[in-house]
Design a protein around this nucleic acid. Structure first.
Lengths: 326, 326
DNA sequence: TTGAAAGCGCTAACAA
DNA sequence: TTGTTAGCGCTTTCAA
């Protein structure tokens, strides 16, 4: 591999001149420029970014930690984060924690070892303290670290409210909702709290099943619904509210058991992933604006890194997507 | 940030000793060890990986280029590649080309500038030549670069055969198949060639629609099927064969038009993504073994990087997943 | 068993 | 406008 001194030697100039040429910093005479360009061409020279990184003490890489890249919500989020980061000349290092908190810890270590310039965390296996003691650019997407880390998430309170209103209007009187574990502190859990509150006020019964979902694959949710739904049939629910993927699994299981959707049971999803259009009937859902969330995440983490101003807590709008499941 | 010399100074030893301690290379006396450990603790020292990278001239990062991270096939592939790379102490840099060939080119540049140690390419917008002139570790997943780059893919010929046999056995006489553009040289296109061949031999009519799909989102496929399917109703097809996501879109459109599946039209998907379980009826499909593909990709690219032996062309088995769409 | 010193490939300050 | 030089923080000889 040719280095900058090889180029300098071949062009009969100093390395400083070559460096100034490469970085368009400082003066380079027309004559030197031509000689340098020729040398670069002949040697097929490419500057070694590793050396630049060392000098500047940055890698231009942002780490993105998600629970499971296979979950449509996170694959879409990662996609748009990568696209946005690329536009800003940053690269995206991805990490699936798949429920392993050790992996989260190791990625935080990378931050301290200068492998990445900043981290966007959308997973939450680890204790908050582990994050809080790190004094480097971190941004949380939908995970609340006691308000100590800048946070971006959808307006889940509004989401819960819209969902409740829509189900009540559709005539539900007795709703079953499946929620993630409340041990995990995520703003998205608020939708279920608000949902229940509003339903209760309107005289609609809500049974809340707190699951300990920590895997996110479709097959897991299918299995879960297949095994669990029977436990609740005797409460005669007429509505189900949960995230899109478990909602889809639930719909499949219910249909197999002979329930008609939406006539017998109405189903409301949450997230607005593309899969809601694949079911029959299409699932009604509260959609998060993933591309916008991604853009905010990128803008904010870069502002933090560059020492610019940024908002510590950003909340984005959600909207109802009408399917035919209620 | 504390550096290795700060640790050395505080521990009253030389930097060489600290380095040997950190890397467990060479001798370090019990006494030095304790002093160093104490100093590291007190300074909260973390070695700077950027400096290590420069010295060793490697980053331990592998670039993964996929067309669209939002497509379930590629999100699943990326997930498993990341998990496997992590096990081998490598990190995963991800790139969605989303059809932009410039991005592919830039990522190849990163390879030459030592940002990544190797690249796994599962996208193919770029001309082969761009790849061929790069003399560094590259591995192609399901993209044929004139045999010049090591290649891994599923046994698409077998896939096409199984699909044909299953549809023929189900009684199809007149099949419509949607294929990606044949301009793109990907082994996966072979399934459609084999499929057509076998059907023809058995006296089953096949109409092949060569699309110019270059986007991979669900919404694109839905739109496509909504607009295009009408053009072919007059040929009275009784079967459709295409990749899972377009197949699902097709099923939705056909059902809306009043066709019963599988009674009126039988549908066969390809890929075996999780979404096939979400439709009604569940889609029958030929499944690729994504975790296995990912593992082979990782093992092979690492063998290339480390100068070990590897197979230039690996083909993995596929299998039929029986749904109820035929 | 150790520390001093050279150097990984580059950037930027500085003197010319 | 240019070339020389001193680092960036680490690893690894090599002589002690």
């Amino acid at each position: 591999m040719a280095g900058i001194r090889d180029v300098a030697k071949k062009a009969h100039v100093g390395v400083g001149t070559v460096s100034r040429y490469l970085n368009k910093s400082g003066y380079v005479s027309e004559e030197s420029r031509e000689k340098i360009e020729k040398a670069i061409r002949e040697l097929d020279y490419q500057p070694n970014e590793l050396a630049r990184n060392l000098y500047h003490n940055r890698s231009s890489i942002i780490g993105v930690i998600v629970p499971d890249l296979e979950h449509p919500l996170f694959s879409k989020l990662s996609k748009y984060i990568e696209i946005k980061l690329y536009e800003k000349n940053y690269k995206t290092l991805i990490c699936n924690t798949v429920g392993v908190s050790n992996r989260e810890k190791e990625y935080l270590g990378m931050l301290e070892r200068n492998v990445v310039d900043g981290i966007i965390v959308a997973a939450h296996t680890l204790q908050s303290d582990e994050y809080l003691k790190i004094n480097r650019p971190i941004l949380a997407m939908d995970k609340d670290f006691k308000g100590q880390i800048p946070l971006i998430h959808s307006d889940h309170k509004k989401g819960g409210r819209i969902a409740a209103e829509a189900m009540i209007q559709a005539g539900c009187k007795n709703i079953l909702q499946f929620t993630p574990s409340s041990k995990v502190s995520t703003p998205s859990n608020q939708r279920h709290i608000v949902f229940e509150e509003i339903c209760r006020k309107q005289g609609v019964r809500v049974t809340t099943i707190e699951t300990n979902w920590n895997l996110f694959t479709n097959s897991y949710y299918r299995q879960y619904m297949k095994e669990e739904i029977d436990k609740y049939v005797d409460i005669n629910f007429d509505g189900v509210f949960t995230a899109d993927i478990p909602a889809i699994a639930c719909m499949t299981v219910l249909k197999k058991k002979g329930y008609r959707i939406p006539e017998d049971v109405k189903v409301m999803g949450y997230d607005g992933v593309d899969e809601i259009y694949m079911t029959d009937p299409p699932l009604t859902s509260i959609a998060q604006n993933i591309p916008e969330l991604a853009e905010r995440c990128v803008d904010t983490i870069l502002n933090i890194i560059e020492g610019k101003k940024y908002e510590k807590h950003q909340i984005l709008d959600v909207k109802l997507i009408k399917g035919s499941s209620l």
